[in-house]
């Protein structure tokens, strides 16, 4: 059996270097503006996809971008995503606005037409609220939709992709136009 004859000191040194590099990268990224979980094109895709809901959002509809309470990064991500809606994005015949909402304030937030889970948001809480309000849960994390923890995942680059978890949609009592269902991927 081959043995590793590298001295422990050299291994520790290598590990130390790696940790130092990792810390440096993390520290650097802490000072840099983190990319939001969704891009401007992503939220346009979200808004347009919502136009295929049955029923589609009404004129005065708004979207809650949900963040984790006490999580600064999550809150900042929600604020950035909400800001991408600008003065409003068209969803069918409606124009959707957005605002960030803390997960612990969802119950008193009013009646959003959709929930977007920001980075770090407690998606279980978001999905529970979506079920309660019969509205859609949207995320930029595909694994959350694959696991049934959220309803819809979108990506605009390099090609528009939309994935919908049908079981999650049913649990929220949601329906989509038949033609739309045929053009997206369902799980």
């Amino acid at each position: 059996m081959a043995k590793d004859h590298r001295p422990i000191g050299r291994t520790a040194s290598a590990l130390g270097t790696a940790v130092a590099v990792a810390v440096f990268i993390c520290a650097s990224s802490a000072f840099a503006e983190p990319a939001p979980s969704m891009t401007g094109r992503d939220v346009q895709v979200v808004a347009r996809a919502l136009g295929f809901l049955q029923p589609p959002p009404s004129n005065d509809a708004w979207v809650a971008v949900v963040f984790a309470p006490g999580d600064t990064a999550s809150r900042q991500d929600a604020e950035r995503v909400a800001a991408l809606f600008g003065t409003g994005l068209r969803a069918g015949h409606a124009v959707l606005s957005a605002r960030s909402v803390s997960a612990d304030a969802l119950a008193s937030a009013g009646n959003p037409a959709a929930l977007i889970a920001a980075i770090g948001a407690p998606v279980g809480v978001v999905m529970a609220a979506a079920r309660l309000g019969h509205i859609i849960c949207i995320t930029a994390a595909l694994d959350q939709v694959e696991a049934g923890h959220c309803t819809m995942w979108v990506r605009s680059e390099p090609r528009v992709e939309i994935v919908i978890n049908q079981a999650a949609a049913r649990s929220c009592d949601l329906g989509f136009a038949a033609a739309f269902r045929m053009m997206v991927r369902e799980l």
Partner: peptide, 22 residues
């Protein structure tokens, strides 16, 4: 129907959504 206005194929909305003709 589901419950609300829908359409067989809304070419305009679908093209805007997917960024390509349908």
């Amino acid at each position: 129907p589901g419950t609300a206005p829908a359409q067989s194929i809304d070419y305009g909305a679908s093209e805007a959504l997917f960024g390509e003709p349908v």
